[in-house]
Write a protein that binds this DNA or RNA. Sequence first.
DNA 1: ATTTTTGCTTGCATATTGCAAGTGCAAATA
DNA 2: TATTTGCACTTGCAATATGCAAGCAAAAAT
Lengths: 135, 135
Amino acid sequence: MAKYNKRSDCPVSCSLDVWGDKWSLLIIRDLINAKQCTYGDFLKSAEGIATNILASRLLALEENGLIEKLSHPDSKAKVLYKLTPKGIDLLPLMIEIGIWSEKYYDIDKVKKAELKEVKKNKEEYIKAKIKELRS
Amino acid sequence: MAKYNKRSDCPVSCSLDVWGDKWSLLIIRDLINAKQCTYGDFLKSAEGIATNILASRLLALEENGLIEKLSHPDSKAKVLYKLTPKGIDLLPLMIEIGIWSEKYYDIDKVKKAELKEVKKNKEEYIKAKIKELRS
DNA sequence: ATTTTTGCTTGCATATTGCAAGTGCAAATA
DNA sequence: TATTTGCACTTGCAATATGCAAGCAAAAAT
């Protein structure tokens, strides 16, 4: 995203420059859930991102090294998006988002059950999930 | 922030509706660092937020229950902003942001040293910091 | 009494996002 | 082989959010 200007060298500031917009974290979320998505998969996602915004976010995330494009095994017309290791490393952050949200907002049942599992042993859950996402 | 519309009941989506803009997390960060700030303190912050944006973000964060306004002991002209328990609960999330940023970007020395401490015993650090922020 | 500080608000320019339609290429269908 | 459909985008324009500069009322300092 073409931000107005670079901000400070604070961790929060740096992060926001990379994924601090209205949609990037939702794209990351989809990729954590599904491991890989096509362009169409993202469009079908619950929140309904506009196609031009999706294209610009995917490009920015790719340029920032959080996701990568792979050729689809079934078809040349399709593209597969996956998280890079750098993107996968956002998992702990995403989990904390989940824990915080669950405490203060109504979350759907499936996510709630998943978070219950996470909280049993956070470290282990993260390790296992990372392994799964890298494979 | 008057978003176009509410999104899904996903944790990430809910969170983004509350703090998913360009400035909210930086305000939270300032309050975690300083424990309490005046309006002027935020304006002096490194990134340089515009005063109208600051006002609108502070209002939104207050409406969403993340921060609260207190009267300043020294002066009626001054206002103190502090995190609520709900705001303080964003600390684990902020720490994960720090850890991720440090891994992939150049962070200032002070923050790096702080993160080194955090990683020695994350649980303990969070507990202590929460206690400090609530007092 | 006058000036300065403090926490804002207002008006307007710029940037980002949202919506609808369209384009080019690959794949499926006739 | 010709035509239609699916997929990954692009383009144009409207709506919203952010950035910048100036202004304003109440409190505090001089």
